[in-house]
Computed example of a mutant assay.
Amino acid sequence: MKEIVNIQDLQKKFGKFQALSSVNFTVNAGEVVGFIGPNGAGKSTTIRILLGIIKRDAGNAEIFGKDVWKDSLEIHKRISYVPGDVSLWGNLTGGEIIDLFLKLHGGGNKQKRDDLIKRFELDPKKKAKGYSKGNRQKVGLIAALSVDSDLYILDEPTSGLDPLMEAVFQEEVEKIKESGKAILLSSHILSEVERLADRVVIIRQGEIVEAGTLRELRHLTRSTVTLETEGNVAEMARVNGVIDFRQKGNQATFSAENDYLNDILIEASKLGVKKFESAPPTLENLFMRHYEG
């Protein structure tokens, strides 16, 4: 796969505060990379460095093989960006602002623009000062998605959108991905990242603490099993790999170490299985593992 973004040992300080310690990850063509972490973890600082807004202290950051600080003007011709809180000119209409953004970028697909205005249910004739936060986000999204870019940097793009509009956004991201474009998606909505991302990068206190596909990361944690048996289900509490065993009647819920799932199934079958459900860990489980406490 063609590498679009390459970040190596990225570091940034604000005074004595170390915002980024050693950040490493890549984004390839045709994939969505979910970039997640709580407020203050370093997501926005990383994105601002990628956009050439602030200068890094150390390490390397490249987009399309070009330095993000020295070659920012060239890079910006091929990227689209949506921030988490879109600021607009209050006396211009939404439609005028979208057209201005497209003109500043150097073009844009007007048919695509009209289609997105309809799909996002935006009133383009209304002045921006009368827009809600959700409608301001729609303006930013429509402008960004109407441009044929090679990289889309989306920082909390669905902030303020209702679930129906989130679904429209997710469909558009799928289309972009299928066309071979690269997407860096930073979001607090973990279900959104889980649905869209091919790989996930989790940042904590300026350092990357996990990175990989969801399938790879799920090997690092446990599945949740719900089991109902004809025999005494309490006997399962003693089986290797069974953790946090909770029983109600002859049904039990517990966490299962993935390496022991086969042993757990064998022992459960001896008790006469009436119900066996195994759910893989969610992205939220993985995320909370690094942040709880």
Rank of each mutant, 00 (worst) to 15 (best):
Q8C: 13
L10W: 07
Q11N: 10
K12T: 07
S22H: 10
V23Q: 08
V23E: 04
V32D: 03
F35Y: 14
F35K: 01
I36A: 02
A41M: 12
K43E: 13
T45F: 08
I47N: 03
I53C: 00
I54S: 09
Y81I: 04
P83E: 01
G84P: 07
V86F: 03
L102F: 05
H105D: 13
K112C: 08
L116R: 11
R119I: 04
L122F: 02
D123A: 15
G130F: 15
N135H: 11
Q137K: 07
A143G: 03
A144Y: 14
L145V: 00
L145P: 09
V147S: 05
D148W: 03
I153G: 10
L164R: 10
E166Y: 01
E172I: 02
E178G: 02
G180H: 10
A182L: 00
L184Q: 06
I189S: 06
L196R: 13
A197Q: 07
R199I: 07
R199T: 05
R199Q: 12
V200D: 00
V201D: 13
I202A: 04
R204K: 15
V209I: 13
R215A: 15
E216Y: 04
L217A: 08
T224I: 14
V225P: 01
N232W: 03
N232M: 01
N232V: 00
V233D: 09
M236W: 01
M236C: 13
V239W: 01
I243V: 15
F245H: 11
R246T: 05
Y260I: 05
L261G: 06
L261M: 14
D263S: 15
E267G: 09
L271R: 00
E284Y: 05
R289H: 07
